[in-house]
């Protein structure tokens, strides 16, 4: 059985607090959040604006340091690393996909994909081979040498996804990956994520406010006002709304898992 593999935790965050200084005292963006993400999971972090979901994302991505709390990534305690060690961990274990793609405009698709390997000191021949393979895997094998501005939005996001997985990271972090795309292209990108998750066993964490995306995840981590919120999909957006929208589009309503009070929380 593959249960051992599936249940081994990749991200273990406990009691994480992040405060930002403001004019009138510290603003607590995250207030004692504890989460766990297992290997091979595809998880959404959802919540309204100001809920702290982006803050949580930046802390998981080691792009910022928490005020307090413990963070174990892939078995390594990364709670209090130096800036250099943080950079090394980002380079080896994390892959980022951003809402606005964040491709470097003067580099070709394949050069963009090579960037994590450049900083990983991989030699140029192997770099090129890995980057080409990654672009091949996201269906852009024919666009290796295109500059970003010659690619469509969906293609740009595919390049970004190739860049996020080229160095074989422990997790891929996607921040509103469909936010700048039209509905159809967004669906294609989410399908690609799902494919990478199912076929390559990639662990993927997506930050989104789109319930349509949330519903297709293995699990949703809900946040409100810096704290975990259970059943964020049904409670915040409302199950009835989905059902109405789905009926309008002539679709069969998909049941949303609503957790009852008192049930042991996985979150």
């Amino acid at each position: 059985m593959s249960t051992d593999y599936i249940t081994s935790p990749i991200v273990q965050i406990s009691d994480m607090v992040k405060e930002f200084p403001t004019g009138d005292g510290a603003f607590r963006a995250l207030d004692g959040v504890s989460i766990q993400v297992d290997q091979g999971e595809m998880v959404a972090i959802m919540g309204p604006s100001g809920s702290g979901k982006s803050t949580l994302m930046t802390l998981i991505g080691l792009l910022d340091t928490p005020t307090s709390g413990r963070y174990i990534l892939d078995g390594e305690d990364v709670s209090s690393l130096s800036r250099l060690e943080q950079a090394r961990v980002r380079n080896r274990k994390l892959g980022f996909v951003f809402q606005n793609f964040n491709l470097l405009p003067r580099l070709s698709a394949v050069q963009n994909v090579e960037l994590p390997l450049v900083y990983g000191r991989v030699d140029s021949r192997q770099r090129r081979a890995q980057a080409s393979a990654a672009l091949e895997a996201v269906g852009l094998g024919a666009k290796l040498h295109n500059l970003p501005n010659t690619l469509s939005g969906g293609q740009k996001q595919r390049v970004a996804i190739a860049r996020a997985l080229v160095h074989n990271p422990a997790i891929i972090l996607a921040d509103e990956p469909t936010g700048a795309l039209d509905t159809r292209t967004g669906a294609e990108i989410m399908a690609l994520f799902r494919e990478l998750n199912r076929e390559q066993g990639r662990t993927i964490i997506v930050v989104t406010h789109d319930p349509e995306i949330g519903r297709h995840m293995d699990r949703v981590i809900g946040l409100r006002d810096g704290r975990l919120a259970e059943n964020i999909l049904s409670e915040y957006y409302g199950v009835e709304v989905f059902e109405r929208v789905e009926r309008e589009h002539g679709l069969e309503p998909v049941p949303v898992p609503v957790r009852r009070q008192g049930e042991a929380s996985r979150i």
């Binding site: 800036r83 950079a87 980002r90 380079n91 951003f98 470097l104 960037l115 900083y119």
Partner: peptide, 9 residues
């Protein structure tokens, strides 16, 4: 972006 991809200081 470069730092997110692993560029050190």
């Amino acid at each position: 972006v470069r730092k997110a991809l692993g560029a050190s200081d």
